[in-house]
Each structure stands twice: as structure tokens, then as C-alpha cells.
Design a protein around this nucleic acid. Structure first.
Lengths: 199, 199
DNA sequence: CGACTTCTTGAACGCGCTGTCAAGAAGTCG
DNA sequence: CGACTTCTTGACAGCGCGTTCAAGAAGTCG
């Protein structure tokens, strides 16, 4: 079945990616449709016709964010030794390795931001966020299990519990960093967490 | 100097405390002045005359929240042994020890919520939040230093770094819990953190 | 070419919000 | 009592927001 009618003049995926950046840096409520119109170069009606209302648009952006992040996460943890890779994972969301003062740089983890802004009031957002957290702990649990089997990670605790704790650490770092980041202190704290995992 | 003019008909502190609960459970943006009027039984004009605009009102509530919390924190950590008290502190913000499903129960830590919603866009909010985080790590650092000196807490890491890490853990737990709390998993993760601190 | 479908454009609607203000009420002070 | 100050009340102004919609443009299909 060939698609008939006037063809879209903009790239849907590219528009969603651009919207993701805007939502990421400014948040859901603080991003107006007008700002999206200006940033994407697409008029209101076209956005509504393509993505539905603002909430749907935003949640689609969050889903895209998570899909990309999870792919990176799985790839990053598929290495030996595990702990250095884990250190990268923990420092990444707060962008400790880049210039934080960059203008327009997205702040923290979009899933965490969504949790703070829409959860638990919005049930669909709660689903998206919960699934992301579950996937994160699943991926980390697998990695930690491998690390324990290899004798690199301590067996003093269950991999599930270690993974859950690391979820808290990464989300906490991501959140607290918004208020200003002392890179040295943050890295020292992360290293403390990593060292506690060493066998 | 005696205060002249018509006396206020409501209790200012009590109104602020009630507003704090509302802001806490619904967030800054989602709490309208009208809701405050209804909940406090005080008309708009009186609120504006007493507390200034909404942002000031909110930030005053956050300051009150933190003052109360810090008093509790210092008192809770002034015990021996330290680790059980620390466990209480970590589980408290997410209210793991109470019924989470209670209607109207405030969600997470108000400072963390403020971080997500107003920081870094609002400089005054950023100050309030940063000061709270700094005080938290200072109080915890002191406690951990005592714990290390008493031989209860491991000396494998500096107290400052342990405290910073615990800030991340408590804020992460507080945030993630909004999306639904698996009490068993959360407690197991907290216990993992506590055990890692044991000498 | 003409019928049909889909996308584009930008004006306009309706709503809820924060913040203001004028008139009156309730006190103190001389 | 009369002047003065402060608080209360509720209407209302003004604004920005998300969303809709009608008219036109740009394609496909028979």
C-alpha cells in the first residue's frame, strides 16, 4: 500500500530527536509548544498532526531517550574488567567527563527528570519510568553476576541488591548535580562506591 | 514598639506549615494559589500580603522543611552505634516504614523535588538547595568521622566521600520511589550500603 | 484532468493561572 | 471619638498556554 496525499516536509525522527533535546534541557512543563515550533521549524498544526498532544510527544521523546541509553549501557558493560566500565556508567549521566557549564547542555537523566515532574500523577509516565528503572537494574544485575562469577565483584551482597543501590546512586548524582557539581567530590564518592564493590 | 492596625486572623506559622504539606505533595508548579486559598482558608490577598508572591512562599516552605529535617537528622545521628541510626535516616525520606499508599502523603524529599523542578533555572532555589545538600554532607561527615574513630565504620574511604555517596543514595531512593516502591528490594539495597560501611 | 488524501499554515478559542486593587473591617493611639 | 494603620475580601485584569480548525498546498491514483 503506497502512502498517498501530500508528503511530510520534515523528518519525523529528526524532529523527535530535536524535541528530546529541548525537553531534556528545559523539562516538560517549561517547554512550550511555541518553543518547539521555533526550535524544530515545524508549525503547531503539523506537530499536533504528527505527534498528537504535548504529553504524547514528550513521552515518545522519553521512550527514545531510554532506548538509546539502554543500548549504550549494554554495550558499555560488555567488557572485562567490569568495574572501570561501571565507573563510566555512573559518571556519565552527570557528564562529569565533559564541560558542565556548556550552555544548553541537557541536565541529568531525562527519566529521572520525568519521575520528578510527572510521576506519580501521570500513569503512563509512571509506566515508562518504571520500565526504564527495571531494565536498568536487570542489565546491571546481569553484569554484576558476571563480575561476581569472575571474582572481580564482591559476593558479600546479592547482585540484585547491588544493582538497585547503583540505580539510587546514579539517579541521586544526576539530581544533585543540577544544583552545581563539585567534580572532585563527586568522583571521589563514585570511586568509594566502586571500591566497595571490589572483591 | 507595639504593632498597630488590624491583627492577622490566621496563624502565619501554621499557614506556612500547611502550605509546606501542599507544596510537598503536589509540587511547585502544580499547586495553584487557589488550592492554597482553599486548603489554608485564607484569601488570596492575605496570602500575597503576608508571604509575597508564590515563589517566595514556596522557598520559605522549603527552608522550613529543611530546618525541621536537619534538626531531626542531627538528633537521630547522635547515638551509638551509628549504623542502625544511619539506616533509619536512609529509609526515612521514602517513608519505607509507613504506608506509602496513603492518599495525600508527601512524596520524597522536598529539597530533591525542588532541585528537579526549579534548579538550575532559579538562582535563589539553587542557593537553598545547595545549602541543604552541603549541610547534609557536613552532618553526615561528622557522624561518620565519629563512627570511624569508634571503629564501627570502615576507614577504607574518607568520611567526606562516604557522606557524599550517602547523599546520592538517599536522594536517588527518594526520587525512584515516586514511581512505585518495592519495599523489600529497597530495604535490601539500603542494607547493602550500610554493610559496606561496616568496619 | 479531476477526485481524493494528507500535510501546512497561522489565526483564533477557551481556559486557568498569577498577581492587583479598591472598599470595607478591625484593631491602636492621642 | 477621630485619625491612622493593617488585614480581609472577592472581583478582575492580563497573560501565556495547549489545542483546534478552516483554507489552501502538494502529492497519488484512475
Amino acid at each position: 500500500m503506497v502512502r498517498t496525499g501530500r508528503p511530510r516536509e520534515f523528518d519525523k525522527d529528526q524532529a523527535l530527536a530535536r524535541a528530546l533535546e529541548l525537553f531534556w534541557s528545559r523539562g516538560y512543563g517549561a517547554t512550550s509548544i511555541q518553543e518547539l515550533v521555533d526550535a524544530l521549524g515545524v508549525e503547531r498544526g503539523s506537530l499536533y498532526g504528527t505527534f498528537g498532544d504535548k504529553r504524547r510527544f514528550y513521552l515518545d521523546a522519553v521512550r527514545l531517550y531510554w532506548d538509546v541509553y539502554e543500548r549504550h549501557l549494554v554495550a558499555a558493560l560488555d567488557t572485562t574488567p567490569l568495574l572501570p566500565a561501571l565507573r563510566e556508567v555512573l559518571t556519565h549521566p552527570a557528564r562529569l567527563d565533559e564541560l558542565v557549564s556548556d550552555v544548553g547542555v541537557p541536565q541529568g537523566c531525562l527519566v529521572g527528570n520525568t519521575t520528578a515532574e510527572l510521576v506519580p500523577h501521570d500513569s503512563e509516565a509512571t509506566e515508562v519510568v518504571s520500565r526504564s528503572y527495571r531494565r536498568f537494574t536487570e542489565v546491571l544485575t546481569d553484569a554484576l553476576r558476571r563480575g561476581q562469577a569472575a571474582g572481580e565483584v564482591t559476593g558479600n551482597a546479592r547482585p540484585e541488591d547491588q544493582a538497585q543501590l547503583l540505580l539510587y546512586v546514579v539517579q541521586g548524582l544526576s539530581l544533585v548535580s543540577r544544583a552545581g557539581l563539585d567534580r572532585t567530590a563527586a568522583l571521589a564518592a563514585i570511586d568509594t562506591a566502586i571500591e566497595a564493590l571490589r572483591a
